Computed example of a mutant assay.
Amino acid sequence: MTSDLGFTCSCRGAHQSGLPMNYSAEAPAVWDPAFADADDCLLSSDQCVVHAQHYFVKRVIEIPIIGSDEVFPGVSGSHSAARTSPVSAELWDTFGREAEKPHFGWLTTDLPVYSPTTLNLKAHVHTRTVGERPYVEPEPTDHPLAVEQRAGITQDRVREIAEAVLHSGSSEEQ
């Protein structure tokens, strides 16, 4: 017997089959569409460079789901600042990069399902093997995102996030 992990939308009353588990911000908050034609700017699905001075790499934020072996990467596809130099870009295709020690970064995306804002939340960035996005560990504070990452979230919270993101129009399912 399979279970339907979908949910009934409280806004529209429609049943959503399945439960989206992965969301992504298109760009860090500092990105301006006017940068797209600049030679010193880049926005790809994994990296962002602003005026060859500010470097960003797409990261994931994994949150354990209580009562499950799964993690919710859904709030995840946010961007966070890479180190102040393009070191993350230099290591992008380097095998063994997962041996790098975690480094400091800032969350540069406002995740609309959290208040106060997640913009400029301090974090530790953990590099993974080539082909996997690094993951973000918010500093252990009382910010709701940091608390949820430490304590986990329920399936009801996953549905709440899915509903909020699907109706916000500001994030894309990844």
Rank of each mutant, 00 (worst) to 15 (best):
A81E: 14
H79T: 07
A52N: 15
R133Q: 12
T141L: 07
A29R: 05
V113W: 03
R97E: 04
P20W: 00
V158P: 02
L43H: 09
R83L: 06
K101D: 13
I153K: 05
W31T: 13
T129R: 13
R150F: 00
G169Q: 11
C48G: 06
G105I: 02
G131F: 00
L119N: 04
V130M: 10
P134F: 01
T141N: 06
S168M: 07
V75I: 14
T141G: 03
P116D: 06
L91C: 05
P112G: 05
C48D: 08
P20R: 15
D110K: 13
S10H: 15
D46T: 12
P134E: 13
H143E: 11
C48N: 06
M21L: 15
L5Q: 10
P112F: 01
E139N: 07
V49E: 09
D37H: 12
A89Y: 02
S80I: 05
L5A: 06
P134A: 15
S3D: 13
D142W: 01
D39I: 02
M1A: 08
T127W: 02
R159M: 10
T117V: 08
Q53Y: 01
A38C: 09
P28T: 13
P112H: 04
W92T: 04
H126R: 07
T84K: 09
A14S: 09
V158I: 05
V60S: 12
D40A: 03
D156M: 03
V87Y: 09
A81K: 09
G169K: 09
I63S: 08
T94K: 11
A52Y: 00
V87F: 07
S115N: 14
G131K: 00
A162V: 06
G18E: 11
D93C: 02
A27L: 04
T141V: 07
S10G: 14
G152V: 06
K58H: 03
T117K: 03
D39M: 05
H124C: 06
D32C: 10
E139Q: 08
I61G: 04
F56S: 11
P112N: 08
I63P: 00
V50T: 08
E100D: 14
P144I: 11
V50C: 10
D142P: 02
V165F: 15
V30R: 08
Y23A: 11
A25T: 15
S3H: 11
S78I: 14
V113H: 10
D110T: 07
S88L: 14
L111A: 10
Y55F: 15
G18F: 05
